[in-house]
Design a binder for these strands. Sequence first.
RNA 1: CGGGGCGUGGCGCAGCCUGGUCAGCGCGCGUGUUUUGGGUACACGAGGCCGCCGGUUCGAAUCCGGCCGCCCCGACCA
Length: 437
Amino acid sequence: MRLSRSLVPTLKETPAEAQIVSHRLMLRAGLIRQTAAGIYAWLPAGFRVLQRITQIVREEQDAIGAQEMLMPTIQPAELWRESGRYEGYGKEMLRFRDRHDRELLYGPTNEEMVTDLFRQSVRSYRELPQIVYHIQWKFRDEVRPRFGVMRGREFLMKDAYSVDIDRDGAVLNYRKMMLAYMRTFRRMGLSAIPMAADTGPIGGDLSHEFIILAPTGESEVFYDAAFEEIDYSPAAFDATSAADLERFFHLMTSHYAATDEKHDPAQWEKIAPERRRQGRGIEVGHIFYFGTKYSASMGFSVAGPDGKPFHPEMGSYGIGVSRLVGAIIEASHDEAGIIWPDPVAPFRAAILNLKVGDPACDGLSERLYAALGASALYDDRDERPGVKFADADLLGHPWQIIVGPRGAASGKVELKRRASGEREELSPEAALARIGA
RNA sequence: CGGGGCGUGGCGCAGCCUGGUCAGCGCGCGUGUUUUGGGUACACGAGGCCGCCGGUUCGAAUCCGGCCGCCCCGACCA
């Protein structure tokens, strides 16, 4: 993208409404603009980040055999009356009527719809198990939206739903999903810790929240250093092996981890002092098993091996995709701006042409831009070098290729790594090689 | 939803208490000169029915009422 022709409205000053660092930086870097309380427009650079994250989530869901689909944002009230949640959900649900006076709602989640879809089409246990998921906008009419995209009313979420013939199958899918989640967050450069969460009416130990560590996180978290040592790469655990999944699940759930509200000092004291870890965290995912709650209330049953109908066991699994953008920034930034982990950066590199109009600078910059293509943001604006440096740091591109008259004369450019601040002068070819283009 | 605060050019703010030559400052934006590796300097310039509606008054950004929007603390949450 050529910056001179891009809608990337960076701000020198922070708008008054933004309090937390990710919100300020997202506004300042021109990633988002607020449209209404808790509702944001994703501008080109911000949208790219959203897409990078979405893609990682998608790949890891696909890897455990989940099927991607797309359900509507609007749902009929009727579906929710069946499960009894229409009344139960409260004012957080945005309700409205169409021209025929039919009651509709903007979906905050999709359990009812998935259950309905399955009951329409799946008749036998032989068609199970299955997992479906979609990445779709949700709306929860929060009384008090805040923290930018971290707590918006409209948000992008990945929600998956598993359907199994029995509890054992459901447990297996639950564990698969936990593994997929750990891999997903790791790929984004985040340290995530699963923590036991309230399981509601089902009970048991099958509900976990995924907290990522960030110095400015919303809640205090306590955990065992063991979490830092677990290798959950494909080499360590096979997501299709029940034995591996059980071993993995055990590793993940046998160590102490809790947020401040559930913190148990007695348990905490049992951990060796040098293994106690304390920090702040942000919830970015939640998975849970809810058995036959919806299949039973909504009349979804399939024929079993004995020919008799039964209600399948289900679970649902969410990841706050848009919230992750804010969470990643909370976990990775400095005074100057965002520091994107490579896998989620909107652009792999920025090309800073320090002297637009200078034949040597223009020539080198264009050459680099042609080589990098869509993965680069070419700052071809007729601006002062200082402005370009500041904006590049603010935008947080992993790499900056600085093309200035000083080096251009001898065919050299400077390569800066955003995270470390390291710079080195080299040829354009060498710079491209280092970036890995 | 309870408590608090704020709406004045794109952004950050002053002015309001003590109505009238108060529509102003910084940044940004445009033009020119200047500068040329970390938000350059100077000059000139464009840009605002002071959130909306109504009231008081000779006169309202300023006082009064209503409404709308936004933010913060709390309760609540991916």
